[in-house]
Nucleic acid binder design. Structure first.
Lengths: 234, 234
DNA sequence: AGAGTAAGTTTACGATATAAGCTGTCAAGT
DNA sequence: ACTTGACAGCTTATATCGTAAACTTACTCT
């Protein structure tokens, strides 16, 4: 018996590479990265494992595609404002990205390919900094730092096991939770350091302090250069 | 027939957890991270896969153990000197570590556990910074930045495929190599940015510039605070 | 009507992590 | 001297993994 195709259902809308990648990101977000397999990903897309190879060359290609999707969530052009605002915005966007995809984020640093998206983002910010009178060498150095900081800081935050309701947590449970992460014979002092470094109550404020450090550093450099210039001019 | 144990050979010196982990690090260094399997690791240690489970609880445990070994290569106590030197030393040590273990290094950022070693390192440096008059909040912020910068910067360097003899490379091959990393329709401008961001000829000098930015930032902050203090005192 | 093509399927193979149970060796205690 | 128990490694078995090769549809174009 021939099953005629019903026009209101076709057969099924065919998958696309982007759909596969989107499915993969969703899957990794929900389960962990190591749980991602072609078989299971196919299942969530209503398709057998091998069908995915129509849209993806290999699992490696799939992972690269995930990274590409992640980068695409960062806007290329920073909002209006001077380079300081642009830098702050980028750093925040990177941190948010990692928070949005905690399980997929490690891929950002570990795939050994250069993605075009981050280069475009660099390009846009470099232009703004050049217009703001920042020497190129410094601009590049700051930019590199920001990328690494935004992503790395957020990844480090994730090392701390998620807490149901951190805000309502009292001092005792907070200390005990951190203590549990260490070997039992850790000194009190080490626990104090752990609390300080890994569990500041307001990680966002801490993030901004670090960010300020770098921007302030560049500002200080610019000042010293302009003072030098003025001095040699006299 | 009973095979009596020959005293000059015993049976074999039994494996230890540390030997297994050392073997794992070596294996990952030589082959890549995804090539590591219990079977193949066992083979290099002259043992069957299942025997490894005497010394590690699971493959996850093995990976955590690798991370632990990596951290143990960073000295806890910085050399004598003020906090600026301590910070510089730590950043350099982190970058060197990643360079020494390019294939294993991504694990440093992706395992969601807190390692005691880095906490001890923080502890030592925090003490030095406190003695140097740095307020604790800033010290923590800088420290976090340094960890992330040292590791992240080096990881980013690794995205650029290793070059046989970079020094002897002329301009044309350098540009073409970077161009090949991008989509063919990339604009000239983007290639320029890529060269700037990903392929500075002296990555070490660039690293130091970024580092200076942060230290300078903290110095500038300290200055502004002491000026404020002097002002309110007047 | 027939050929071509794109999407998905079936089957299959070798490699993977690891559970369960087994063997042989050593050291301490009787 | 003989037993016992713990320890280190081995064997076997299972479910899952990535992916190669060949096949089945169903749609499109001539």
């Amino acid at each position: 018996m021939l099953v005629t195709v019903d026009s209101r259902e076709r057969v099924r809308a065919p998958l696309s590479r982007q759909q596969v990648l989107a499915g993969a990101v969703r899957y990794v977000d929900e389960h962990r990265l190591d749980a991602l397999s072609m078989h299971k990903l196919g299942a969530t897309l209503g398709v057998k494992a091998m069908s995915l190879y129509r849209h993806v060359a290999s699992k490696d290609d799939l992972l690269d595609g995930i990274v590409e999707r992640l980068w695409s969530e960062i806007p290329i052009d920073p909002p209006d404002g001077d380079w300081r605002q642009g830098i702050r915005h980028l750093a925040g966007a990177l941190r948010d990205l990692v928070h949005r995809h905690p399980h997929a984020a490690p891929l950002l640093n570990s795939r050994q390919t250069i993605q075009e998206r981050p280069l475009r983002i660099c390009d846009a910010l470099l232009r703004i900094m050049r217009d703001g009178g920042v020497p190129e060498q410094c601009a590049v150095a700051l930019l590199r730092t920001i990328f690494v900081y935004g992503i790395g800081y957020a990844l480090a935050e994730l090392s701390i096991p998620a807490q149901p309701n951190r805000d309502a947590e009292d001092e005792v449970t907070r200390i005990r939770r951190v203590t549990n992460l260490l070997t039992p014979q850790a000194s009190d002092n080490l626990v104090r350091t752990a609390l300080l470094v890994c569990d500041s109550c307001d990680m966002t404020a801490q993030f901004d302090i670090g960010l300020d450090l770098m921007i302030r550093g560049l500002d200080a450099y610019l000042d010293s250069v302009s003072v030098d210039a003025a001095a040699t001019q006299n």
